[in-house]
Each structure stands twice: as C-alpha cells, then as structure tokens.
C-alpha cells in the first residue's frame, strides 16, 4: 500500500499526468495554452499552489474537522493563489497580462482541490510534497506541450521565434478554443496509443 516518496512523485509525470490521465483541470488547459510561455507560466503557478496547499493541508490534517474540510481547503488554496497573483503582477507583469483571469481561477481548479481532498488530507507531509510537486510538474509539461503544438501551428512561432519562415500561413483555428479541444484530443489519443503496450 505505502508507496515510496519517489513513486508518489513520478506518478504525476506519466501514470496520473493531468490533464491527460486525470481528465481534470481542463479549463486552464484549454484556455491558456495559446503559446508555450503561457502554458508553462500557468503550469508553474499551479505547481506552486499545489505544493503549498498540499503541504499545509497535510500539516493541518489532524486539526481540521472533517465536516468543514472543504471550506478549509478553499481558504488555504485561495490564499496561495492570491499570493501567486500578486507576486506575478509585481515581478512578471507581461505573463500576468496574458494569463489574466485564469490565475484567480486556479482556486477552482479541480486538480488542486482534488489533491488536497484525495491525497494530502490522508497522508503525511513528505508524500504530500512529492505528490504536489509531481502532479504540478506533470501539469506544467502537459500545458507546455499543448502550448507548443498550438503556438507552432496557430501562429508559426515557438517561444516567440518564427520557426516556419515567412511563407507559412498561420492555421488560426489552432489558436481558438476548438483547436485546443482537437489538440488535447489528439495528444490524449497518442498517449493512450503509447501507453497501451
């Protein structure tokens, strides 16, 4: 039953990688993956929140009465999200501009609440940290990959550098929400294909 710390960390990178394996947190995954930079920025913000909230929830798990646990989780998560929002505004303003409303929306991201409820509330602090970090990095990688596909096809650039030359006509569909669904679907299909063996 008891998995090692490393296992808890590694499961977030493939076995339970969000949003592909745990199909949670789709809203930010679809909305902010217009470019690699946005995807990675969102992923890192979420990782920070996941790590801190997992840590604190795990520390407080003996104190928090089970009946009001969800309310407590939300307070903890909302606090860290606001911290991220303020710090991002103060230090990486351009990133904040492109992520905009989706930063405050991390509060209602099911991944974060899901990890608190399903994992951190029942586990000691070390596995909780490993779990938060693993899931967070997995989420960051997924968003970065989806962002790369959408930015390359939809805008002809990668991290702001033109990759196809001037003759490339951007495939604007990929920058829109439907393009995000198609991109996500194809990546999910690919992952299932690889994981099937």
């Amino acid at each position: 039953m008891a998995k090692s710390i490393t296992q808890e960390f590694v499961k977030g990178l493939w076995d339970e990688i969000p949003p592909f394996r745990l199909v949670l947190g789709l809203c930010p995954a679809l909305a902010v993956t217009k470019s690699v930079q946005d995807g990675l920025g969102m992923g890192m913000a979420t990782t920070f929140v996941l790590l801190c909230s997992n840590m604190l929830v795990s520390l407080l798990r003996k104190v928090i009465p089970p009946k009001v646990r969800i309310a407590c989780f939300i307070v903890v998560i909302a606090t860290f999200v606001t911290v991220v929002e303020l710090v991002m505004q103060a230090y990486t303003y351009p990133l904040f501009l492109s992520l905009g409303i989706f930063i405050p929306l991390i509060v209602v991201n099911c991944i974060v609440l899901g990890r608190s409820e399903a994992f951190a509330f029942k586990q000691p602090i070390l596995p909780s940290i490993a779990d938060g970090l693993g899931i967070g990095i997995g989420f960051t990688l997924s968003l970065g990959a989806l962002g790369a596909v959408r930015e390359a096809l939809g805008n002809g650039t990668l991290l702001g550098h033109s990759i196809f030359g001037a003759g490339f006509e951007p495939f604007a569909f990929m920058q829109e929400a439907p393009g995000a669904f198609v991109g996500l679907g194809l990546m999910l299909a690919l992952m299932n294909l690889v994981g099937k063996k």
Binding site: V63, P65, K67, V68, C72, V75, V76, T79, T82, L86
Partner: peptide, 22 residues
Amino acid sequence: IKMVVVLTVLSAFSGGLLAAIK
C-alpha cells in the same frame, strides 16, 4: 466550536498574510 475556531483562525491568518503581501 472546534469547526468555528479552526475556520476563523485559518481565515484570519490568511487575511493577514495577504494584506502583508499586498
């Protein structure tokens, strides 16, 4: 009482932290 106390303390702490950062 425990529920009320825990939530209050948690919220007060969170409010203080955020005010400081802001």
